[in-house]
Design a binder for these strands. Structure first.
Lengths: 205, 205
DNA sequence: TGTACATCAGTGAACGCGCGTTCACTGATGTAC
DNA sequence: TGTACATCAGTGAACGCGCGTTCACTGATGTAC
């Protein structure tokens, strides 16, 4: 990672890292290619040896984020086994944990405005992350009597939406940050109520 | 609203309207003061007769959004009376309806990065909107036995987060837009499950 | 081991652009008498 | 009703800036013989 002499050694990744830093600090708007280059100790023009341009660099940052994200989700899912419930709750927590631990990635993925369909790699890895959550919801569904069982994809959409909403509103300097509850508690309790609503947790537990 | 001659007549509002249009079309990033001025048929410099600058213009757009938003929430709440449940569900739906009908305002409020604490007017009206939801959640809480009753502010935070997540992920060109469910259904069913979880709707209804 | 050469990753200067903002100005409006 | 004048809302030119991108270039690296 240390730059020595004319050749950088690992400029591509250094640029991604710089981009992630800048995106975290200044938001996706504040991020500039030139500044990322500067932070990597290199001329703006050098960026074009590794990326097609500004957008492409952001997309790569997002892609790496999805990669980490999918791994974390998978890990949480596995760790919760063999309990479908434990696995499901763990994936929910993993969402928030990811947003907390990798804010730059999170912003690049969800707030930078880049489309997941921008390139196939990005689409594939996003799909992988999404699939874990859906699988987890599917496992859970099987414990609900078929006639009152909502589609697994709907359950996962609910939890994704709740998690995302908690992150956006309560885990940032956003409108809801004056809330008296830590985001983790908010998500935990919200998922708890939701699971009761599905009949998966006894009503008075 | 028609510009005639040298003086515009209602430039201040025309600029806000132009800003809302541009924010909706191009996102908060794509919005520029110059373009808003142009769209209002005026020189960029004229903007400074009415606003302190770019940020101030966005803040005013957001403020007007919160005003409409608070009114809609209040209206939904009133309309649901005297049923606490109906009122609560109506406010949830109002959230999504607002996001759909006033996308420019919504983006200015929640995605432009401006802080609600930027000026007192903005903070006050945001507080007003938030208060309606909290009151609605409070009414609802009273139907839950005290010992298993979550704080009203927590319930409202859950619903806000769920609503916001649904909007961000499923009602835009965002990552989740490939979902097979319309956002309205997603929110409706999510709130339904949640209310069952609170014991406010019979388990098998 | 030494040399020639192809390949590659960087430089640095230059570009055109549109941005937000400032300034002295001027045209239009409204009011006092 | 007409005139003088203050006030106000716009103009238009100019600014400095940093941006993303291009281009011909050059220094470093690695490989064939």
């Amino acid at each position: 990672m240390v730059k020595r002499g004319y050749h950088h050694g690992n400029l591509r990744q250094a640029l991604v890292d710089a981009a992630l830093d800048l995106i975290r600090e200044k938001g996706p708007t504040g991020f500039t290619l030139s500044e990322a280059a500067k932070q990597a100790g290199v001329t703006p023009a050098a960026v074009y040896r590794h990326f097609e341009g500004r957008e492409d660099l952001i997309a790569e940052a997002a892609r790496q984020g999805y990669e980490i994200f999918a791994d974390l989700m998978q890990y949480a899912y596995d760790k919760g086994q063999p309990s479908a419930l434990a696995a499901f709750e763990a994936t929910g927590r993993a969402y928030l944990a990811f947003a907390r631990r990798y804010p730059g990635h999170y912003i690049a993925m969800f707030e930078s405005g880049i489309s997941v369909n921008r390139n196939p790699d990005l689409a594939a890895v996003a799909r992988r992350a999404w699939t874990v959550l859906e699988k987890s919801a599917g496992d859970l569904s099987r414990h609900i009597p078929p006639e009152k069982r909502p589609p697994a994809s709907m359950v996962s959409a609910h939890i994704w939406a709740l998690s995302h909403g908690v992150v956006e509103l309560f885990a940032r300097n956003s409108p809801g940050s004056q809330s008296p509850f830590p985001p983790e508690d908010l998500l935990e309790s919200g998922i708890g109520v939701y699971l009761r609503g599905l009949g998966l947790i006894p009503p008075d537990a």
